[in-house]
Nucleic acid binder design. Structure first.
Lengths: 337, 337
DNA sequence: TCGCCATGGGGAACCGGTTCCATTGGACAA
DNA sequence: TTGTCCAATGGAACCGGTTCCCCATGGCGA
């Protein structure tokens, strides 16, 4: 285990000079620097990030808290975060937060607080006021993605405006029986996204005078979830909607598959829109509102780095909008007749 | 920044006693222990894992190296690893390895070697002999998942036997024109999986006397990849195979979607089998060979913990088989006529 | 010539736990 | 009673970089 002291000895300098030479801080003559570098290379010196972390108080690690890794949106965000962090020389420590409150508490107390990370990025999770306080109290910047968390910077689309826009699109095509298939409002992981998306649909329906009691059905946020939900909703031709606003692209794809199964033509007999920009959307010809999760991840890292940098004080906590693109494909058209 | 010294002072004991009381190592009277614990709780003592890591030489962190997080198999494995590690009190640091050799090198030299992790789990990545040596030289246990890596323990299905078995299944149903849609042999991330899966198909075909030149087409390992590959392969009714062995379930699902698009009935006119046990397999009625990636992830953690434990010396490096289940659904039957 | 400052470098404290070693006091056996 | 053993605890070294403080040298303006 060669330490910096060995490098120093070999180069014939003191520990402090060796440290300065290798880290680039402080004054070191060019000649000394190369001598130290050669010595380090010769004995295969690998600095201990643990030791430097103890000395500087920085771990160069960012904790990422996420509810799922196997759902498209989250995996994409994670990918963006990872590559941005690596480029910036940071490690990414992953904490998956399940519904289980005990494990959630454990992650917070035992891991995040233990000075193992310099900052936290929370994806699709609403932190409690207490959790936010405990992290902020430790001086750790936090950035959220995918919803709003009071008192911290969050990056997200405007969920209510998004579904309102999509619903208006369907209304403008002439649809009058529009339904929303989205997430369960009472779900642990809600993060208020589900309720806001439903609210957007309802606002647009109300504005168009198209409100009706069967405007919503809760389904799991997945292709099978959308599929079985749609089977139930579409099976009765009399009450069937002519258009569905899905809570996400996975649900929308499930709806399209269910429609095919039932022999319902999309879009001739049923229009479907989603939200996300899932990489299968194109294959299914899905009209959707693309958000770009991997870019959101990169943006979150950028915000974190600003808050870790020298001008940390300048950062203001606010809800930050992200880029979206409305992509019309083959799953939407005017209603039949 | 309350340190253990503050706790000790408040409890009226020495630093060493406070440390023993809180960590549970060494002799401490019951009364002293509770006094120290109360003191720690009172000032909200949070131990610094950095400091204890420096003292013990352990980071209680495992590095996970993975080529993708947004592909089903990898996301599932990651999920299994994460939950097993958290239960064991370990952190998981994620390193995504792209094709880019420069970034790959950087991850190895700069991150993995820097005493930031106690062990490494490599998923779907073949490590070079040099990379293995450098990690083993640092005394870090390594376990691989999803393929073989010389000189380290790897957890994987027998890829060749798997496709051979699936092909034999199709042969036994009476199919004579069987084709494999799988991964590109020359891909950076090959890990030999692609070639072994192809070899299994060819072995079964040869054994049945059904070898033919058009037995393989390389496609991306994804639903769109399987879809467009299948469109090309199935478009000519004269040369079209009656059965397809897909390299993974995503490809198989793409094939099914393409068949539907072309009006080819599955399984009446085309049988399709996959490998993985993807969570969409059931929805598409896909016959597949399930491997259980999240269980593989948990198993890998278990192997790592054994190698980090006191009996580390007893661990033998070998290829370790994993559980598989053959699940017959609605995508396979006898060929037409 | 004096003094200031920039540059270069050594010594030692320090970050915050862990652990080795020494000491003490009491129980128990000889 | 004396010796032995062990629970219980304190003191100090230690892990391995980082950085503060101090000293030396030399150039240059006043």
């Amino acid at each position: 285990m060669s330490a910096i002291a060995d490098v120093a000895r070999l180069a014939g300098v003191s520990k402090s000079t060796a440290s300065r030479a290798l880290s680039g801080n402080g004054y070191v003559s060019e000649e000394t620097r190369t001598r130290v570098e050669h010595a380090a290379a010769e004995i295969g010196f690998v600095p201990s990030s643990i030791a430097s972390g103890l000395a500087t108080g920085l771990t160069r690690t960012v904790g990422v808290v996420i509810p799922f890794v196997n759902r498209w949106f989250f995996a994409e965000v994670l990918e963006g975060i990872e590559s941005a962090l690596i480029s910036a020389g940071y490690d990414l420590t992953l904490y998956q937060l399940h519904d289980d409150p005990v494990r959630r508490q454990r992650v917070f107390d035992y891991f995040l607080a233990r000075k193992r990370v310099d900052a936290v990025i929370a994806i699709g999770i609403s932190l409690s006021a207490h959790e936010v306080r405990s992290l902020k109290g430790l001086g750790k910047p936090i950035v959220g993605i995918g919803g709003e968390i009071p008192a911290i910077s969050t990056l997200s689309i405007d969920d209510e405006a998004a579904t309102q826009f999509l619903t208006e699109h369907l209304v403008s095509l002439g649809h009058t029986r529009i339904m929303h298939l989205g997430g369960d409002q009472n779900h642990q992981m809600d993060f208020a996204v589900h309720s806001r998306r439903l609210a957007g649909v309802r606002r647009a329906l109300a504005a168009a005078g198209l409100s009706h009691p069967d405007d919503f059905r809760a389904v799991p946020y997945s292709i099978p979830g959308g599929y079985s939900g749609a089977l139930a909703v579409l099976s009765n031709p009399a009450t069937r909607p002519t258009a569905i606003v899905a809570g996400c692209d996975e649900i929308a794809i499930g709806v399209i598959l269910a429609a095919r199964e039932l022999g319902i033509a999309v879009p001739a007999q049923l229009s479907v829109v989603g939200i996300d920009g899932h990489n299968l959307a194109e294959l299914f010809g899905l009209t959707t509102l693309e958000q770009h999760p991997s870019a959101q991840g990169e943006h979150a890292v950028q915000l974190i780095l600003e808050r870790l940098g020298p001008d940390a004080g300048l950062a203001v906590d606010e809800r930050i909008g992200v880029a979206i693109d409305f992509v019309v494909r083959r799953s939407t058209t005017a209603p039949p007749h």
